[in-house]
Write a protein that binds this DNA or RNA. Structure first.
Lengths: 273, 273
DNA sequence: TTTAATCCAGTTGTATGACATCACTCAACT
DNA sequence: AGTTGAGTGATGTCATACAACTGGATTAAA
């Protein structure tokens, strides 16, 4: 019990100790182990638990978090697979030497969070929201019928007023409804303009939880339209990331196309062997 | 016990049933759960366990694999985090709708395997192995002193005789030794020429196991040298992947630079939320 | 007949306790 | 000095029981 774990190295110990398992609060669909892993992960990503730091042993962690050791172990397995911690049999569990951050593509974070975590202030320069029939490609990605109505959101994203990303989000119109019926475009626009996040809108207004995303990497170069939007010379290198977000039932929820100015961000990937 | 699981959908059932836990065979350093996960993962990636397939319940799996249910659960957690399976509380465990393949960057596979899995025959067009002092950048990536001797391996990789990748591998010379002393360059060359894999060489000759890799994504365009090597026009889009492979102790083992012709492969990434 | 509520079997999630195995330290011995 | 071996503390594995959830069947009510 003499672990000075948090005490002398972490600023805010209170985040960990008063962990309440939350049983039937709001319907969650996540398991206890996943919530514990999520809690520890955010501590690591916020830097509260520094690299190479040694965690308490599993029985103590179990007592601290007020969950059983098997739950702790399950959570640690999740974190280990993500490259956040390293376990050494017979020795202990340690924060990884180089744990993933928000510019790790293995973590499904949005553009806004990416910009913010790079130390810049996120913003939006152009904003165009429309409905249109789905192209064949879009319909294919979203498992829709070609021509089905979709909501598209076109934005130029800013980092400290510099144009760094052009993003084009697509969402089936049939999903844009709550218990009161269809949500009108202006309401969507208002929400996304303020919060700068379509994921927040999907979660809070449509109650659509994203289980994971599948992203395709397309290196390309800027043609006229993109060069104009991003204020870069034509032919500049562009990283095009096309992503489908998948819900808990395996259903595609949204399609995202993001075009990054090549030198604006450095992306990396954790590749497990 | 009436699961026709394997029986009617999988060609080679024998791979699963006679699972032997392998206790002290060769020193492994991997846990039993990891080996079980690895075994199931290869079955999935080879297509023996089709998408959306339902696995036996955990007690039956435990009996089939001759390990305890907690070990099974640990293995399943690993696979779930990798996007290979989906577990549904109270229902069952299923192969994912779209499980990762070798062109998933979250899986640390080499170029040769990538080419082979795309259905093409891998080959090598140019082959140059040298020793040189480490540049500052290389030394930094590999945690070496600048100027320390490194072995570099330059190759043009072929897929059905088409030039698709230019790769530049770097390895500290201090690691290129076995119990008999330093391994001469010609021996390295002979091995890698035949097996077309530097990872195999590191594992079998140097006993260096790679725990994971960290890859950086750099979209760029081909300058003169690369355009020549890859037989493409100057200015063509190139996907540059720089990767550091990390050992079990967190030590950097090798540095890999791979330059992919943009349209040769489609890479994707599994992004967990 | 239709609808809603209830039960029930099957499956994954969590808790608990015990033991196995590994890595490290350090004293004892050769 | 070098080696062996016990001891300690950590993670890994096993076993068992129970809780919570899902989906379908059954039953009861409208």
């Amino acid at each position: 019990m003499s672990y000075n774990w948090i005490k002398d190295k972490v600023e805010n110990p209170s985040r960990l100790q008063p962990f309440v398992p939350i049983v039937g609060d709001s319907y969650d669909s996540t398991t206890l182990a996943q919530r514990v892993a999520e809690q520890l992960r955010s501590l690591i990503m916020e830097g509260k638990l520094p690299p190479e730091y040694r965690l308490p042993n599993e029985p103590d962690l179990s007592a601290l978090l007020n969950v059983s050791r098997s739950t702790v172990r399950s959570a640690l397995t999740i974190l280990e697979q993500g490259g956040f911690i390293q376990r050494r049999w017979g020795v202990g569990t340690f924060i990884a030497k180089d744990p993933p951050t928000y510019n790790n593509l293995s973590i499904n974070s949005g553009v806004t969070q990416l910009i913010r975590s790079s130390g810049a202030e996120p913003g939006t320069a152009e904003f165009l929201i429309t409905t249109r029939p789905a192209s064949e490609h879009v319909a294919n990605r979203l498992s829709l019928e070609p021509g089905a109505p979709v909501v598209t959101l076109e934005r130029v994203r800013l980092a400290n007023d510099r144009r760094v990303v052009f993003s084009l989000d697509t969402l089936s119109q049939s999903l844009c409804r709550n218990q009161d019926g269809e949500i009108p475009l202006p309401e969507i626009e208002a929400f996304v303009r303020e919060r700068q996040s379509m994921y927040d809108f999907m979660r809070e207004r449509l109650f659509l939880d994203i289980h994971h995303g599948i992203a395709w990497i397309h290196p390309t170069s800027a043609e006229a339209y993109l060069a104009d939007k991003l204020s870069i010379p034509r032919g500049s290198s562009i990283l095009h990331i096309e992503q489908v977000d998948i819900g808990n039932d395996g259903e595609p929820l949204a399609l995202t196309n993001e075009y990054y100015v090549a030198d604006a961000f450095t992306f990396y990937i954790y590749r497990s062997s």
